[in-house]
């Protein structure tokens, strides 16, 4: 009964919206990239890089707004390198993604020890008190922004054409390469915000703090069928699982939380198999152009 009232409270609802933030930012980012035809399984790594660099910049500059800007620049560079591999050199996108995830995990671990002589976490960071909340608000506004950008603007139409049929798009004068780069860079920026949110809400960076959120974001994108609003609901569902898990852990109820942790991934597989509606990725998703 206590658990039930815990779940039905307003704080629990607020908790869900908070926890949705990194998922939705990552998932929207991945969506922009895939809409342009580039599969980015490196969202996890992008978030990790951003979280780490934001923490480092905050500590060294003492100004979290400046740190945010610097962190976004780092992720833009990272995205450009990722596009260089996947778009310009046409290297397999999955393998590149795995490589980026490994390299970023290595870089962050290495710099952690180098800067803070600790392999687990940074010292406490004082982040601007409104940072986490503003990012959550932005994430909610992002639903409308994505819908507008993808479906109501020339940019969105051309971006999607790069992911559906790049050959036809190019023949009509669309600079396909440019849009693919744009898609990946947007994914880098949005996942960076996800990483920054994690650091600002926990007030430090710790090794492994992304904890698979980048992959859950990919899962949400698939369940949301590459559509901004649907993706949002998928993220809300996953955030609810996470909030539930925490509530259960605190209450000490005899329900195995590991199995709740597993749900996002299991549901994704079930959705992919077709138990819950049909899914259809962009037609030229993952195919180098």
């Amino acid at each position: 009964m206590e658990i039930l009232s815990g779940i039905l409270s307003f704080t629990f609802l607020a908790q869900i919206f908070r926890m949705m933030t990194p998922y939705y930012l990552g998932a929207s980012g991945a969506n922009f990239s895939e809409r342009a035809g580039v599969i980015n399984i490196s969202i996890e790594g992008f978030m990790n890089m951003a979280a780490f660099s934001f923490a480092v910049f905050s500590i060294f500059t003492g100004n979290s707004i400046l740190a945010l800007v610097l962190c976004l620049i780092v992720n833009i560079i990272l995205s450009i390198v990722f596009s260089l591999f996947t778009v310009t050199l046409k290297i397999n996108q999955i393998v590149t993604g795995v490589g980026f995830n490994l390299l970023i995990a290595g870089i962050t671990k290495f710099l952690m020890v180098l800067f803070f002589s600790s392999s687990s976490n940074t010292p406490r960071i004082s982040v601007h008190p409104d940072m986490a909340f503003s990012i959550t608000l932005f994430a909610i506004a992002l639903i409308l922004i994505s819908i507008h950008l993808l479906y109501k603007t020339k940019f969105g139409l051309r971006l999607r054409s790069a992911g559906e049929n790049p050959w036809a798009a190019e023949s009509l004068g669309v600079k396909v390469m440019k849009y693919k780069y744009a898609g990946v860079i947007i994914s880098g920026l949005l996942s960076a915000l996800g990483g920054i949110w994690l650091v600002s809400s926990q007030n430090n960076y710790s090794d492994g703090m992304i904890a698979g959120r980048g992959y859950i974001a990919l899962a949400a994108m698939i369940i949301g069928k590459w559509k901004p609003l649907n993706i949002f609901f998928a993220c809300l569902m996953f955030a609810a699982f996470e909030a539930l898990e925490i509530t259960l852990q605190i209450s000490g109820a005899d329900i195995p939380t590991q199995l709740i942790q597993m749900l996002p991934y299991l549901i994704t597989i079930l959705v992919l198999i077709g138990f819950i509606g049909k899914t259809k990725p962009p037609a030229a998703d993952g195919i180098p152009y």
Partner: peptide, 23 residues
């Protein structure tokens, strides 16, 4: 130097093999 430098090296090897292959 922190031993984690080797994780960076392993990551670099995979990305450089991919790009040098392609080139």
């Amino acid at each position: 130097i922190p031993k984690e430098v080797m994780l960076v090296v392993q990551g670099l090897i995979i990305l450089s093999i991919l790009s040098s292959d392609s080139i």
